[in-house]
Design a protein around this nucleic acid. Sequence first.
DNA 1: ACGGATTTCGCAATCGCTTGCGTCCGCTGC
DNA 2: GCAGCGGACGCAAGCGATTGCGAAATCCGT
Lengths: 354, 354
Amino acid sequence: MTVADEEDGKPKRQSLQLRRATIKDVARAAGVSQSTAARALSGEGYVAEAVQQRVRAAADDLGYVRHAMASSLRRQSSRSIGVLVSDLRNAFYADLAAGVGRRAREHGYTMVLVDDRGSVDEEREALAVFVAMRVAGVILTPLSAAAVDYLTRQRTPFVEADRTFSGGASDAVVIDNVEASRRMADHLISLGHRRIALFIDETDWTTGADRFRGYQESLAQSALEVDESLIIPSGWDAGGSRRAAVDALSRRDRPTAIFAANNVIAEGVWRGIQDLGLRVPDDVSLVAFDDAPWMSMVTPGVTAVAQDTVALGAAAMDRMLERIREPEAAPQTLVLPAEMLPRGSTLAPLSLRR
Amino acid sequence: MTVADEEDGKPKRQSLQLRRATIKDVARAAGVSQSTAARALSGEGYVAEAVQQRVRAAADDLGYVRHAMASSLRRQSSRSIGVLVSDLRNAFYADLAAGVGRRAREHGYTMVLVDDRGSVDEEREALAVFVAMRVAGVILTPLSAAAVDYLTRQRTPFVEADRTFSGGASDAVVIDNVEASRRMADHLISLGHRRIALFIDETDWTTGADRFRGYQESLAQSALEVDESLIIPSGWDAGGSRRAAVDALSRRDRPTAIFAANNVIAEGVWRGIQDLGLRVPDDVSLVAFDDAPWMSMVTPGVTAVAQDTVALGAAAMDRMLERIREPEAAPQTLVLPAEMLPRGSTLAPLSLRR
DNA sequence: ACGGATTTCGCAATCGCTTGCGTCCGCTGC
DNA sequence: GCAGCGGACGCAAGCGATTGCGAAATCCGT
């Protein structure tokens, strides 16, 4: 009797279809026009209740899934955001991505993730891919100013996370590196340390620069000179800082305390200390930037600055959502606090102990 | 003199454009038809050398970036692959994703990554998103048989990684869990352990089931009974297994050795052991499935089964590429070997030492 | 019973790109 | 001198969805 009945004879065999169902198929199956089908499925515009039901039924009968790209194309808007980090194997970046991805999903966005392995070329390529995909925005831990230039020129909204190259000219979410670093150094100084080595991989990015600055400011405040030989370039992997640690700790005038500027460096330094058979904190004190699981598992635990990296990612995504909502708003740099976790890896220097 | 000259007067201001350049704009700028522009940019079909150059010049003059979605739509093919893992904060999954992402990129594919936090609902949603995006394929660490059913019904190629629900009916890349587990148990038995606790979170997936089986087989081979009270459900997070470890090790007849079925469990067990002030391996031996950085940093190091997780991800992507190339080929399950890393966390049980 | 307001739904254009097909042109071979 | 051929390029049709507009149907008040 009803129009829908004409479907009755044949069993529904969505799984046997060769071609994926389109909205046109749904429309035909429901006996309505393509536009009505679209309206029924999206819920926008006037559609009679009965028709809506009929269309919806036809849709999942056919296993119809809206073609997101066609939709994006037509609506000129995308629900995916590009995320670019330096190294997914590094827990810091993985957590960051996890934070972004989860928050994104809560808001109906999907994360397209690339890890550039620290290569500026790969960074550039990745950004081009994002632009090609017309992502709604990009969240990145930039490697170079070229990255922000490119995105700016391409008019693709972006948020820098963890470090920034834009000097406040674009959105960014970072932590208070200067402050956290200063407090760490203060702590060591207050214990009586004077020869505090800073193991650091770079001072060109805001992260490294700020952590270095915090260290300097702390020393300055205590009227201590910065000894250049104690600023130790650690290289980019744990192996490098391990070797550097072995070197530095083998020197006659070895440091009494070490400040590792991130988790990778800390790992290397820790291993280097083990290699030499030194004991923490008796022979050398150790503090680290970033918290990593192992820092609370080794004995003694390593005193560290903990960033809530997942929250950092989520905050970056929040900023992104704001940016999308208000494209013309003034850029904001969000500075999150970092927490200091005292554990057992520091002690007064040997010379001050009896 | 040449046609190109007519561009000379005006300075190029790609950055001042309000609308993003389309291929039509490029065509107009180069003085050719849209189709010629397309051919020039893609390199397909006949295009005169000079024209090609002119078009390319116009393109990057305008900052043109091909609209990947429009292109995908027209060509009915996509260059992105969906990756679904359980928890990006877990190094295992992060590494897996890193492996997939890198291999994907080498082949011009982009990774769309979702982490479902172990929720079957989120898993389902994520897969729907992938289908909506018409990804070329999906690589996943499935949570449920529903996942593989859905993808099968949607005719979306997929590769299961780490565990499989399809019993060989689809592509999968796993490691040899039974064998690795058996060797671990063998090792403990050969040291003289008889009360070996297996801390495990699930035995429903192939990972858990196989690890359990390896353990059983090993005991059986030594004519030992499996004591049900030593198969300890650890819960899904480190906190849970920490508590479980404290419990188990407080029992009068406590196990002399513990086999932790994955890195998260191992972390919890380790912390639990510390909580009780017990020493490894003197008071209890510990071995783990999965290798994690901390296992080689604590003292003593934890004897573990190491999987090359990044390689696992890469292998899954390789399988995916094969599948895309040959959609009708028979499904393959790739079994990668795992390596055993003996460190210092095992010793004969106290009763056998003098 | 009638006019206007409101609801419902179809037509067709459009998003940006690719590509089959047709046309035009210059060159070659006989 | 002309048929034939292949290179170069433009026209226009889609890919699958959304949506402005208009027509038709329905409702409501008087």
